[in-house]
């Protein structure tokens, strides 16, 4: 579900490139139907309604165009998955979003914190923990410039409890398993309550079982914290299992923009997931080939 759907009194249609099917369905019902016991309240338009938007964004490296006029609006709270073959530009998209790279042309608007602080966090494919800092200290890196000292300590312990590693707070990263390290990296990304969490194939290096465990953890925390998630992956099953919306990038363009209007928790291997998965794979590999 997305935040725009919760602004029933805003008459002007919210300008997003793509409304989710869920949002459309919600808009067609009257507010009293969704909250039968609470009178709907007029809500001031929250500037956070759109988490970020790409407007005609291109990124070229020399002659090579990696991203070609991308237009993308993502409402706050959405779980977006970005799929594409290697080298399609999906990682570049994430680097632009997190400010690691600048677009060649076009404008990128990202919602910042109240004081303009950076509230976008990224989780990399590798945990990238500081080997010389204990687990709790590594999580506190996520609070750089936001909190320090005792407050940071408490926050980091709280989020470590959330990912099930509170008892490892005093250990060195080298003694943790790959999955545990990635959970610490997730805790570090989430400790400052980001508006946007960018995930660059964070589960790619994990074994299949740890992966499913991590997907569930990620979904649970996303449902709790309601940040906007952008998951770059090449695992189509993972994308449809987790995301509200999947976009497929091919040769620098958005080749498919698909809503996944399924209830959560989703069951691995259900027929609806399989159908959507098939649709995405067709786009990726071209129906004409099959």
């Amino acid at each position: 579900m997305s935040v725009i759907a919760l602004s029933p009194k805003s008459d002007a249609p919210v300008k997003t490139a793509k409304d989710t099917a869920e949002a459309r369905a919600l808009r067609e019902t009257t507010p009293t139907q969704w909250f039968p016991y609470a009178a709907p309240q007029a809500r001031a338009r929250d500037p956070r309604d759109t988490a970020f938007s790409f407007r005609d964004i291109s990124r070229k490296f020399g002659d090579k165009t990696v991203l070609d006029n991308i237009d993308l609006d993502v409402p706050a709270g959405q779980f977006l998955a970005v799929i594409g073959k290697s080298g399609c530009g999906k990682s570049t998209l994430l680097r632009l979003l997190t400010g690691l790279d600048k677009p060649t042309t076009g404008t990128l608007t990202v919602n910042k914190g109240e004081n303009g602080e950076n509230r976008t966090r990224i989780m990399f494919q590798e945990p990238r923990l500081l080997p010389w800092a204990r687990i709790a200290k590594n999580v506190e890196v996520g609070l750089t410039g936001i909190a320090g000292g005792e407050g940071a300590r408490e926050k980091s312990l709280a989020i470590l409890r959330e990912v099930g590693l509170a008892d490892r707070a005093g250990e060195w990263p080298s003694v943790l398993s790959g999955g545990q390290r990635q959970r610490v990296a997730l805790a570090r990304a989430l400790v400052a309550h980001p508006y946007i969490l960018a995930l660059d194939e964070p589960l790619g290096a994990l074994d299949a079982l740890t992966r499913i465990e991590m997907q569930q953890l990620l979904e649970r925390i996303w449902l709790q914290q309601k940040f906007t998630a952008v998951l770059v992956t090449h695992d189509v099953a993972e994308a449809v299992a987790l995301a509200d919306r999947v976009i497929v990038i091919d040769r620098g363009r958005i080749a498919l923009d698909l809503d996944i209007p399924l209830d959560r928790p989703r069951r691995h291997g259900s027929p609806e997931l399989a159908r959507l998965e098939g649709q995405i794979l067709d786009t990726l590999f071209g129906e004409k080939a099959g």
Binding site: T98, L100, N118
Partner: peptide, 9 residues
């Protein structure tokens, strides 16, 4: 790179 993304001076 991680340090930069997390806003370290």
């Amino acid at each position: 790179e991680m340090g930069r993304v997390y806003g370290m001076s």
